[in-house]
Simulated assay, not measured.
Amino acid sequence: MKTFKVAGFYLAGQNNAQEIRLLDGLIINREDEKQSWLIELFVDPCYEELLRSYEKQKDELKVQVIITHPSNDPALFSAQIRALNKLENGINVLFEGELLHMRNEYAKQILADLVHEGLEGEELIETFDIYLRQRKNARSDKTS
């Protein structure tokens, strides 16, 4: 098994992603036959209601994890919440998931989302550049 620091975490939605600000986080490549990963996050209690709603759904979630350093491209996972515990100073969340895309697929995902939104020409190029620098596919108020 290999363990890495989580530098960023996003719940990926259709054409957007919701950042979950971290207090701390680790991701573990279990290196098993299923290619499974464990993602353990320690987050602010303000996310409890949102995360509990996903926990109750028991559906697979698309999540983006920035591993080790904020400048790295996010890795896309299909994951489920396996445990959610309220602690004194935050919420501990354990996800189990599988890696969906390698890093070079991230740019394709962003481009497809922007084209789907109807962007073209210079607006497409500028917005694509902004999204790549932000390392997430959520629209920023700065891009308006």
Rank of each mutant, 00 (worst) to 15 (best):
N92Q: 03
A79D: 00
K2E: 05
N72T: 07
N85S: 15
Y47P: 14
I110L: 12
K136P: 06
L100T: 01
E60L: 06
L87C: 09
A138D: 11
E60T: 03
E120R: 10
H101C: 11
A83R: 09
L119D: 10
L38H: 03
R21P: 00
A112D: 09
R139Y: 08
Q80C: 01
L132G: 15
L23F: 07
M102S: 12
H116E: 14
Y54K: 05
Y106T: 01
S78D: 14
E48R: 11
I110E: 01
L23P: 02
N104I: 08
D24F: 08
E98P: 00
N92C: 02
G13S: 12
A75M: 06
M1T: 09
L99R: 12
G97Y: 02
R139P: 04
Y106M: 08
A112V: 08
N89Q: 15
E88P: 02
N104P: 13
D113N: 12
R135D: 08
S140Y: 01
E122W: 03
I66E: 08
N16A: 13
I27C: 05
F9P: 10
R135H: 14
N72Y: 08
D24N: 15
E49Q: 08
I130L: 06
F42C: 05
Q134W: 05
N85W: 04
F77T: 07
E33C: 00
S71A: 07
C46H: 06
E40D: 14
E96Y: 01
S53A: 10
I67F: 06
L26N: 10
S71H: 12
N15D: 05
E123K: 12
Y106I: 03
E120V: 10
R133C: 10
R52A: 02
S36V: 01
G118W: 02
Q14D: 11
A79P: 01
N29H: 13
Y47I: 11
I110Q: 04
Y54E: 03
A17Y: 02
L11E: 10
L94M: 06
G97N: 05
L11R: 12
E31D: 07
I66L: 11
V115C: 01
